[in-house]
């Protein structure tokens, strides 16, 4: 990595003026992005009287963990144990992501690497489908899912996710760009079958693609409330349970701030773990080429 950077530095004389403008741009943009986020973190630690203060303060004065404590107490009083909500959310996130990455990349392999007849047309339809509002496809989908007998089961949320248009399109794009054709041909010479090429050549080389996909899917599925498909309380998800807790007007403002922070921190941790791996792979694959 270090040697690569030093090569870049020697390569071109970047003008100091340009660097300065860029620094300013990133600083102002960064501040605009980060100030509301700081407020969210700060609000979670504010005692109730500080949430309603004039003039308002961005940063908490007397930080307290009371909001989190209140949240714990309310969670403990829940009729369905809170671990159950968490488990449901984790099941959805895990299986939803796994299936989408696996089936999506398998299909992307055929479309991007093999290009068998019909795949261009199929890809065209997938891209078009991205632009059709899911609002009106809800009713036909409900009918299908009811017919399959998946109502009030987590399958209703997990399995349709496995064919997300965005996931396939993303994988296909990364494969188009990142797979060295000669690598695939060499494997064919060695007599590797399609699954071997997919699993041992293509997938390791598009690691950034599926790490990015995991980030995006986790973020989306983590928010799932269960929608129209889940009725049983013991099958509801964590965001649903937390949104119920926070519906209590002014008195629950503190708890609400705590909930916002909790819901935010977990996808951010997943993001950080994956992002660090993306940077790792990029560094090594750049060298290996």
């Amino acid at each position: 990595m270090a040697s690569r950077l030093s090569i870049r530095k020697r390569r071109l004389a970047r003008s100091t003026g340009g660097d300065l403008v860029i620094m300013m741009f990133l600083l102002i943009g960064g501040a605009f992005m980060v100030i509301p986020m700081i407020m969210i973190i700060s609000n979670a630690f504010k005692p109730l009287n500080e949430l309603f203060l004039f003039p308002p303060r961005l940063i908490v004065r007397n930080p307290t963990t009371k909001n989190f404590h209140d949240l714990m107490v309310m969670m403990a009083q829940s009729w369905v144990p809170f671990g159950r909500y968490l488990l449901n959310s984790l099941i959805i996130v895990f299986f939803g992501t796994l299936g989408n990455v696996f089936f999506g990349s398998l299909a992307a392999y055929v479309i991007s690497i093999r290009k068998v007849p019909g795949t261009r047309f199929f890809m065209g339809i997938v891209i078009l489908s991205l632009m059709f509002s899911s609002e009106v496809t809800r009713i036909p989908n409900y009918v299908t899912i009811a017919w399959l007998g998946w109502i009030d089961s987590l399958r209703a949320i997990i399995i349709p996710r496995w064919s997300s248009s965005m996931g396939l399109y993303l994988m296909k794009n990364f494969m188009d760009h990142m797979i060295d054709r000669s690598l695939v041909e060499a494997a064919e010479m060695d007599g590797a079958n399609d699954f071997r090429i997919y699993w041992q050549i293509v997938m390791p080389n598009v690691k950034p693609a599926w790490l990015t996909m995991i980030i995006l899917l986790f973020q989306e599925l983590w928010r799932t409330q269960g929608g129209h498909y889940i009725y049983s309380e013991q099958l509801k998800t964590l965001p649903y349970a937390l949104s119920q807790i926070t519906q209590g007007g002014v008195a629950r403002q503190g708890v609400q701030a705590a909930v916002t922070l909790v819901m935010m921190v977990i996808p951010i941790i997943v993001f950080l773990v994956n992002q660090s791996k993306i940077v790792d792979t990029m560094g090594t694959s750049g060298m290996a080429n």
Partner: peptide, 29 residues
């Protein structure tokens, strides 16, 4: 197409779900 049977098999799980949960509902809408 016959030579690439296995490729269509790879595509099948995604394609079937995609048709059932996306193409059919869009056409119905």
């Amino acid at each position: 197409m016959a030579a690439h049977k296995i490729c269509y098999l790879f595509l099948a799980p995604y394609a079937i779900l995609f048709i059932v949960f996306t193409v059919v509902p869009v056409v119905m809408a």
